[in-house]
Design a protein around this nucleic acid. Structure first.
Length: 570
RNA sequence: CGGGGCGUAGCGCAGCCCGGUAGCGCGCCUGCUUUGGGAGCAGGAUGUCGGAGGUUCAAAUCCUCUCGCCCCGACCA
């Protein structure tokens, strides 16, 4: 492809709308353009990258025995009402009516549609197992789209759905997908890790997320320093403290803490550690308000809390509710004398002589002890794991890192097959529910994650397998010799099976070099009069910046050799 | 939805506080020179100042309302 025939609008300056590396570079390199918040056009070069990732995904899905199909973007409300997700999914589900006033939505995921297909078309255990996948545009009306392709409202996803006759089969399919994901992200040249995860809105019995490790990731991962345990922090179990010994209990006292509301303010004012403080969080469940006690140096985990309380909606109570229940403004709530249901994290049980809110403005209580001064209905694991905690498998101590979730595999069990009566006949003629799994990969997010992980101050450094082009051919000047040599090389490189972007514009060398660095093809070949005069042309490896002088005829073979050694090294 | 910020030429921004001619850099067009890391000179084009109301002799600037976008929190591939 010649740049003179390609829409490749690179930007010299950082666009004002982008802050994240991948978002900024993808805009600057002319890969994407925004149409509306979280909605993007893939420009020709950007689409090539998307297609590369899709192709790797497709090959590995096919290899794992999944079959490709394509479901519609729009689906009727009836299917969603069958599983209850028409209501449960909330505002993220973009709804609309057709001309006959029938309710439809844009598919945020396709369990309903595929399960409907299954129940219509599959009758017998002989047809199982089955695994279907598609690569298709999804729409989720995200609360806050951000970071370009990282979290769009419209995005390209590979989603797969497996159907098995029993749990053992489902586990096998799950494992196959897990292994396929491992290969996919390895082939994309990413540094990633599979972690245990929460199942969220999709539901089901267990799941793993595939996380690309990057400081800019939105997810926090905890992993054992000496073992194999790794989990999303929202999922990671925290073991109850094994040391039950407590300090000698001192008598409770009332202290004035003027305008000290936050943990930080209170600990600073009273000169105590955050771990000596217990915060009292009031959560509204929609039905009632529950007090949740968490140690001052810990963070509440709302997913664990929802599970304990058996609710799906949960939010911190507003100032009015807090005042009504505690009689004090926000910041001074405490468990002593509180008349509502109280649950607490395990760590609160073994803490002694703690500081809590006094349920009175500018007042805290110190040397408070449970159960002497207040009672808790239930102790449970309600906090986020943090660095330094014991691994739940007791195979080491937890460390934390940031990650970008690029893939997620779920064991669904019979959640959807039951709701939609997707059954088959077993050898005895008995009707059985299909055991399902579902498996997603964010295609655009994978590309964006690759940029987060592979860039420098000049631009993107694409991993070879998903690079939009393998070779960026840069011709300098418009002399007959240069044009002839570049034309010859272009043909020779393509004949060698390499994808070549030839910058044939009448631009100055600096402009071309800078654009090439920005776009980030793995290898750059520079054709100029200077090189031609000595019969040697420069080949630059984008990642290392190393330039090698080679005779033109030897360049295609040399690049193929470099590519294969780079790939085996990584 | 809560909090913070922004909307002025294709892009990045200044001007707004203190009302009076719409400006800078990059890009774009023409010409000459230049040509291996974002060229120089000369000339040129480009704006419903996000939109609607209002105040005023006069509004990019002040007021009200509205729309869009970005960033921080509650959701997820």
């Amino acid at each position: 492809m010649r740049t003179s025939q390609l829409l490749l609008p690179t930007l010299r300056e950082d666009p004002g709308e982008a802050e994240t590396v991948s978002h900024r570079l993808m805009l600057r390199a002319g890969l994407i353009r925004k149409v509306a918040a979280g909605i993007y056009t893939y420009l020709p070069l950007g689409l090539r990258i998307i297609r590369k990732v899709e192709q790797i995904v497709r090959e590995e899905m096919n290899r794992a025995g999944a079959q490709e199909l394509l479901m519609p973007i729009a689906s009727p409300a009836e299917l969603w009402k069958e599983t209850g997700r028409w209501d449960y999914y909330g505002k993220e589900l973009l709804r609309f009516k057709d001309r006959h006033e029938r309710d439809f939505c844009l598919g945020p995921t396709h369990e309903e549609v595929i399960t409907d297909l299954f129940r219509r078309e599959v009758r017998s255990y002989r047809q199982l197992p089955l695994n279907f996948y598609q690569i298709q545009i999804k729409f989720r009306d995200e609360i806050r789209p951000r970071f370009g392709l990282m979290r769009g409202r419209e995005f390209i996803m590979k989603d797969a759905y497996s159907f098995d006759k029993d749990d053992a089969g489902a586990r096998l399919n799950y494992q196959k997908m897990y292994d396929a994901y491992d290969r996919i992200f390895s082939r994309c040249g990413l540094n990633f890790r599979a972690v245990e995860a929460d199942t969220g809105l999709i539901g089901g019995t267990s799941s793993h997320e595939f996380m690309v490790l990057a400081d800019t990731g939105e997810e926090t991962i905890v992993y054992s320093d000496h073992g194999t345990y790794a989990a999303n922090v929202e999922r990671a179990e925290v073991l109850p403290p094994d040391d039950e010994t407590r300090e000698e209990l001192r008598p409770l006292q009332n202290v004035k803490t003027p305008a000290c509301r936050t943990v930080e303010e209170v600990t600073k004012f009273l000169k105590v550690e955050a771990s000596q403080l217990v915060k009292t969080l009031l959560y509204s469940t929609g039905k009632d308000t529950v007090a949740v006690l968490i140690r001052g140096d810990h963070d509440a985990n709302e997913i664990k809390l929802k599970r304990l309380l058996g609710v799906t909606d949960l939010e911190l109570a507003g100032p009015a509710t807090v005042e009504k229940i505690t009689g004090a403004p926000v910041g001074f709530a405490g468990p002593v004398g509180l008349k509502i249901r109280i649950v607490a994290d395990h760590a609160v049980r073994t803490a002694s002589n703690v500081v809590v809110g006094g349920n009175q403005a500018d007042t805290h209580l110190i040397d408070v002890n449970c159960p002497r001064d207040f009672q808790v209905e239930q102790f449970a694991d309600l906090r986020n794991a943090k660095a330094g905690d014991l691994s739940p498998r007791k195979d080491g101590v937890l460390k934390t890192t940031k990650g970008i979730e690029v893939g997620h595999v779920f064991m669904l069990g019979t959640k959807y097959s039951q709701a939609m009566n997707a059954s088959f006949l077993d050898p005895n003629g008995k009707e059985c529910l299909a055991v399902m799994g579902c498996y997603g990969i964010g295609i655009g997010r994978t590309a964006a994650a690759a940029v987060e992980q592979n860039h420098d101050d000049k631009g993107i450094v694409w991993p070879f397998p998903i690079a939009p082009f393998h070779v960026h051919l840069i011709s300098l000047g418009q002399s007959a010799g240069v044009i002839e040599a570049a034309t010859g090389l272009y043909g020779a490189l393509e004949a060698a099976g390499l994808e070549v972007l030839w910058d044939d514009r009448d631009e100055r060398a600096g402009v071309k070099f800078n654009d090439a660095d920005l776009i980030g093809a793995p290898y750059h070949v520079i054709v100029g009069d200077k090189g031609l005069a000595e019969g040697l042309l420069e080949v630059k490896t984008r990642k290392t910046g190393v330039k090698t002088k080679l005779s033109p005829a030897g360049i295609p073979a040399a690049i193929l050799a470099m590519a294969s050694s780079d790939r085996s090294a990584s």
